[in-house]
Simulated scan of single mutants.
Amino acid sequence: MKPSPFGTQARLGVFGALLFTFMAASSAPTPLYASYQQAWGFSTFWLTWVFAIYAFGLLAALLVGGRLSDHLGRRSVVLGAVLMESGSLLLFHQAHGLNDLIAARAVQGVATGLATSALGAALLDSDQQRGPWLNSLAPLLGMAAGAAGCGLLVTYAPLPLQLTYQVFLGLFLVLALCLLGVPDLLPRQSGTLAALRPRLSVPPQARAMLWRVLPLELAVWATGGFYLSLMPALAKAVTGTTSVLLGAVAVAGLTLSGAACLHRLRHWPAERLLRLGSLALTTGQILLGLAVLGGQLTLLMVGTVVTGIGFGSGFLGATRSLLPLAEPGQRAGLLAAFYVLSYLAFCVPALLVSVLVPRLGLVGAAQLYLAGVLGLALLSGWKLRAPPCAQAC
């Protein structure tokens, strides 16, 4: 039975709020990394591993459980993910060393991976027009809110290493209660055990489009990895400030400008969004590189905003081009494949560059990272010059 308009609105609200909160929780530890590093004395290399272990946990969840919601239903998988996320927040809250932090991030990654695939598919089930838009907007707003909110708590609130996680535990409790009242649109299907076999599921009709948008999507997510792993320390090194809030502002600047662009341009056709994303990311990497070389805070923020425009428009253009090509029973699998490729770009470059930090220094390693993203953005511009049908044929 087709849901009523009010039912559709309610479903979009609950699923969008959950996706927002999962992504906010994922970026909340970023402003705390410097505090953890100072308290427990680990190196930048291990700091990057703390960031990357989240992405590896998320990848594992997508590979093994990305299609679970096609068989068990969206709500059941999301509720399970909420329970796991709550467990990770308790681990963060009680953390006393690097091993505790790694364990908490690993559990959080698995929970976010399960939730991302199921919630993305649920949003598409509910509304094929607004679903892709919310799939793009909610994560960006969530990451901005998580980083900026936590940065403010670290700077101005008592018990910053605990209060952030207490707030998120309360939010997930409220959202879980709301989710219990939302019925599944997709009935349960057989084949649950088979769905646990790691398999990237890209429907044949979506493969040509995936290949076409892949360079831009990799550039978008590599940019996100750069900001969430290296930018807090880089901003301090470039500007000479000791404020934890500056790194949080940089992360929020990227994601907020991306979200604003995404909302403002949500009615643009996918092809136009892709071209804007490629151009803005190319320009943004050049500005960021100049800011790092010159140690200019203003140019760093301008480059962040321009990069954020490419981040938002590229992400929306890719999801709008790709996700509607899947049938209802293929959506979670396609989302899993899409996010596996995205999160590899999110974490692997940061890990590789972190190995070079002792040799090149943080600024030199950051310049190498930015050059790599610039290369991907230029490649995407070249691929987008050909019409979609020319690449699909």
Rank of each mutant, 00 (worst) to 15 (best):
K2E: 13
P5E: 02
G7T: 04
F15L: 05
A24N: 09
A24H: 06
S27D: 09
T30P: 06
P31S: 06
W46Y: 13
W46S: 03
L59Q: 02
A60Q: 08
V64Q: 04
D70S: 11
E85A: 14
G87W: 12
G87N: 10
L91S: 07
L91K: 10
N99Q: 12
I102S: 01
A111R: 10
G113Q: 04
L114T: 06
T116V: 13
L119T: 12
G120K: 11
D127P: 01
R130S: 11
G131D: 10
L137K: 05
A145C: 13
A147I: 12
A148T: 00
L152R: 03
L153P: 02
V154K: 06
V154Y: 01
P158D: 13
L161D: 04
L161I: 02
Y165V: 01
F172L: 15
L177S: 09
G181A: 11
P183I: 12
L185S: 12
L186V: 14
Q189L: 13
S190Q: 15
A194D: 14
L196K: 04
R197E: 00
R197F: 02
P198S: 09
Q205R: 15
V220Y: 04
F226I: 04
F226C: 08
P232I: 03
A233Y: 12
A233C: 09
K236R: 15
K236A: 14
T239H: 00
T241Y: 00
V244H: 05
G253H: 02
A259S: 14
A259G: 14
A260I: 15
C261E: 03
C261R: 03
L265D: 08
L265F: 12
H267T: 13
L274R: 12
G277L: 03
L279V: 15
T282C: 15
L293D: 01
L293R: 09
T298Y: 06
G303S: 03
V305H: 00
G308P: 02
I309S: 03
G312I: 09
G312K: 11
L316K: 06
P324N: 12
L325F: 03
R331Q: 15
F338W: 03
L341A: 13
Y343Q: 01
Y343P: 05
L344S: 05
V348Q: 12
P349F: 07
V353M: 15
V355L: 11
G361H: 01
L374Y: 04
G375F: 07
A377H: 08
A386V: 07
A392N: 07
A392V: 05
